[in-house]
Write a protein that binds this DNA or RNA. Structure first.
Length: 343
DNA sequence: AAGATATTCAACCGCCGGGAC
DNA sequence: TGTCCCGGCGGTTGAATATCT
C-alpha cells in the first residue's frame, strides 16, 4: 500500500530558499502560526513541501535563533552532553539557547570531532585513544597485542606528526626519566646523548622520527617486559596474561606523553596566543573520561569495564543525577528527562 | 591565475513515535 | 485494534565557499 508522500514531489521546488520565499513563509507563520505544516506551503503560496517549510523555519527563520560562531562555553556544553547522550542532537540543542539540532550536528561533525581527535580523544567514546587501545589490549592474547600495537602506532603517528609540525613544542619528557622501563634511548638528532630529558623543537624531522621511535620502543619494551613498568596504575589484570597488561600500561604512559603536548602552555586550541583555553581544564571530565583535565595520566578509573563498554557502544548508560559530572563543573541544569536512562 | 582539494552548512531523505480516528 | 497522518529526529548529500598547490 505504501504511505502517501507528504507532498507531490513533482510540483515542489527544492534546493536553496530565496528571500521572497523566506518572506512569504515568515509572514504567513507570524499571522497563522505553525499548526499544520502540510497546509502552510499551500496557504502561503509556496511551491514547497511542508516538511521543507518546517525545516526552513526551525533551522533558519525562527526569530529566536542565534546565528554565528559557537562560543567556547557552548562547545564545552556540546562535548559534555555528547559524552552522556551521544548523537541525540535535539536533546543537546535543547540545552543551548537559540541553537538547532542541525546547527549542533553540523558543528560537531565539522569542528568538534576534529578538535577532540586532535587532542587524542576519541569523539565517539570521549576517551583517550590510548585508553581505548589499552582496553582492547587487555582482552587479547599476546600475539594479537603485537599487531594491535603496530596498528595503534600507525594512528598515533599521524596525530603526533600533526602536533609536532603545527605547534611549537617546548616540552620536556621529564616524567620518562622517572619511569623504569621507559628510559629514552640515546638520540642521534637534537637532544641526543645520555640525558633522559629531551627538548623537542618544531621543524626537525629527526625529532619527529625520534619521538615516534621512542614511543615504539617503549611500547614494544612494555610488551616484552611488562614487569619493568610501574604498577601504580589501576589496570585491571585479566586472564589474558601479563603481556596485555604491560601493553596497556605502555598505552597509559603514551597518553601522558601526548597529553604533555596537548595541554601544556602551547597546547592545542591556544594557537600560541597565550590565552588559556578552558578545553584543557574541563573538556574531558564527564563520566566517560578520566584522561583529560586534571588527570593527565589517562589511567582507567575504578569503573567496571562493562560499564565503559556500554557507553562506548552508544552512550546508553546514563547515571541518574548530577554525579555524572564532577560536582564542580556542572554548567547547565539537566532535566530529569535528560538524566533518565535512555532506552 | 587556475585547477584541485577541503570545509562548511543548508537542505533533503527515510524512519519512527504518537495522536486522531 | 489497526490505519493514517503529522511532526520530529538523525544521517547524508551536495552546492557554495575557502584554502592549497
Amino acid at each position: 500500500m505504501g504511505r502517501i508522500p507528504c507532498c507531490e514531489k513533482d510540483n515542489v521546488k527544492r534546493g536553496q530558499w530565496t528571500p521572497e520565499e523566506d518572506n512569504k513563509l515568515s509572514s504567513y507563520i507570524s499571522q497563522h502560526g505553525t499548526r499544520n505544516w502540510r497546509l502552510i506551503p499551500k496557504n502561503a503560496g509556496l511551491q514547497r513541501c511542508g516538511k521543507s517549510c518546517r525545516l526552513r523555519w526551525t533551522n533558519y527563520l525562527r526569530p529566536d535563533l542565534k546565528h554565528g560562531e559557537f562560543s567556547e562555553a557552548e562547545e564545552q556544553t556540546i562535548v559534555k552532553l555528547h559524552s552522556v547522550v551521544g548523537n541525540r542532537w535535539s536533546l543537546i540543542a535543547a540545552q543551548l539557547a537559540g541553537r538547532t539540532d542541525n546547527d549542533v550536528k553540523n558543528h560537531w561533525n565539522t569542528k568538534l570531532k576534529k578538535k577532540l581527535s586532535g587532542m587524542g580523544i576519541d569523539p565517539v567514546t570521549h576517551k583517550p585513544f590510548s585508553h581505548l587501545v589499552a582496553e582492547i589490549a587487555t582482552t587479547l592474547a599476546p600475539p594479537q597485542v603485537a599487531h594491535l600495537a603496530e596498528a595503534a602506532l600507525g594512528c598515533f603517528k599521524d596525530e603526533m606528526l600533526h602536533l609536532l609540525t603545527k605547534r611549537r613544542i617546548d616540552f620536556q619528557l621529564q616524567h620518562q626519566s622517572s619511569v623504569p622501563g621507559f628510559e629514552v634511548p640515546p638520540l642521534t638528532g637534537t637532544g641526543g646523548g645520555t640525558s633522559a630529558t629531551t627538548t623537542f623543537v618544531k621543524g626537525s624531522t629527526n625529532d619527529k622520527d625520534d619521538t615516534i621511535q621512542k614511543i615504539k620502543l617503549g611500547l614494544s619494551r612494555a610488551m616484552q617486559e611488562p614487569d619493568a613498568l610501574p604498577t601504580n596504575k589501576p589496570w585491571t589484570t585479566t586472564s589474558t596474561g601479563e603481556t596485555s597488561e604491560g601493553f596497556a600500561r605502555a598505552c597509559n604512559e603514551f597518553t601522558a606523553v601526548v597529553s604533555g603536548f596537548q595541554y601544556g602552555p602551547s597546547s592545542y586550541g591556544n594557537d600560541g596566543e597565550g590565552e588559556a583555553s578552558p578545553w584543557g581544564q574541563s573538556m574531558c571530565t564527564g563520566s566517560t573520561c578520566t584522561g583529560g583535565g586534571g588527570d593527565q595520566q589517562g589511567g582507567l578509573n575504578e569503573r567496571g569495564q562493562d560499564e565503559d563498554r556500554e557507553e562506548a557502544e552508544g552512550g546508553k548508560s546514563v547515571e541518574k543525577g548530577s554525579n555524572v559530572f564532577n560536582s564542580d563543573c556542572v554548567l547547565w541544569d539537566l532535566s530529569d528527562d535528560l538524566m533518565n536512562p535512555i532506552v
